[in-house]
Design a protein around this nucleic acid. Structure first.
Lengths: 205, 205
DNA sequence: TTTATCTGGTGACTTAGGTTACCAGCTTAT
DNA sequence: ATAAGCTGGTAACCTAAGTCACCAGATAAA
């Protein structure tokens, strides 16, 4: 296993020391829930390895918002931690992941003492904000075929493979629509030569 | 006119001093554009009086995201200023407004020296993030009648009046839809007894 | 092996909302 | 006063997408 210093290059050594002292490194297997909606947060996760998916949910429907990747953290738990408010999103490990858990009681102090941590969270806020803005524009202006195709491309990027093994049912859930609709739209994308459905999974062309 | 101290209670006096020295207080009349998309920012506005509307735009369609009210600022210009990136939203004064313009070259320093400013922007980020999340859920799960009614209620709150004078065309623009559709849905809301269209404007019941 | 479950595919139907075209009643300029 | 432009209303139509019902093939469990 690599050391914290190797994961968190660019952070001052005194901060890394603090992290080693008070942070907790923990493994999460694929599909493990990392943050629940309504949850109050004691540890803010920072992704060292792997990736975490963040969703919003409304009644039984959900929607994939974005991924948290290596070196990034979850602003919802950051805020929920600092302000003791409840999370409005939920998060799940997308693959086997290694997280560094930051205790919230230290966080406030750290944000003040280490400008680079402060800056990291500002950057993350900005990135997620931009991502939500993008989602809004897609919801408002794109049809589902476009959204599905984007989704598949992003998934392929995450899995680092042009062929992805995934059920229609899951795609539907992550795009906030119904399974039958995915089935229909997938056929359309296939006819347009953008994807190919084969036994091993879906190939993105 | 009130002094900066009166507008910005809770901020340390040394910071107010800095603001008086380097900030610019400026009046904006209703409908004045305050931030353009793609714009690079030299001054980050902080609303003292009035209110500013923030929109996203995609081709010719736009969508009202939220209001910036007294004591609040625009995180998009904050980020655009600090990182010298382009704004992804645009903003317009909703009424005659008084803004305090913060020069970006000072901002970086201020964020570090004054934790309360730092905290203000974290709070604003969180608030806007929550607002975008809300918009996403509405776009995904609510029908237009519900969205329109929410919009009217929010507008009434802003104008501080149950009767609002506004064109169907503008409502359509701010909700990202077409004028005819508003006309149709307004009739529906009227039949349901939720609003009343009279010569002076729309009454929200 | 023989169920039971999961998976994707499909046709038929419904609905919200976008589009087109047009009209009547006000306001505002000329 | 007359014309031009804004405003809201409406009918007809179209399309994307949600819903329902059902089916066949694959996969997993008994």
């Amino acid at each position: 296993m690599r050391t914290l210093q190797q994961y968190l290059q660019g952070l001052p050594i005194e901060f890394i020391d603090q992290l080693e002292k008070f942070g907790i490194i923990k493994d999460f297997s694929e599909q493990t829930e990392i943050l629940r909606e309504g949850q109050y947060v004691k540890y803010v996760p920072l992704v060292l390895e792997g990736a975490v998916k963040v969703f919003t949910r409304h009644e039984d429907k959900e929607l994939l918002l974005y991924y948290i990747e290596s070196g990034e953290s979850c602003i919802m738990s950051f805020n929920a931690g600092l302000k003791s408010t409840a999370s409005k999103v939920f998060a799940v490990a997308d693959k086997k992941s290694l997280l560094l858990l930051l205790p919230v009681e230290k966080l406030n102090e750290w944000v003040k003492s280490f400008p680079s941590l402060n800056e990291l969270f500002f950057n993350l806020y900005d990135q997620r904000y931009a991502s939500l803005l993008d989602t809004i524009n897609h919801l408002l202006y794109s049809r589902l075929d476009q959204r599905l195709y984007n989704y598949l491309q992003e998934t392929a990027r995450q899995k680092n493979s042009k062929i992805i093994n995934i059920r229609h049912r899951q795609m539907a859930a992550e795009l906030g629509t119904a399974r039958e609709v995915i089935s229909r739209v997938m056929k359309k994308l296939e006819q347009e030569g953008k994807v190919k459905q084969l036994q091993g999974g879906i190939e993105i062309l």
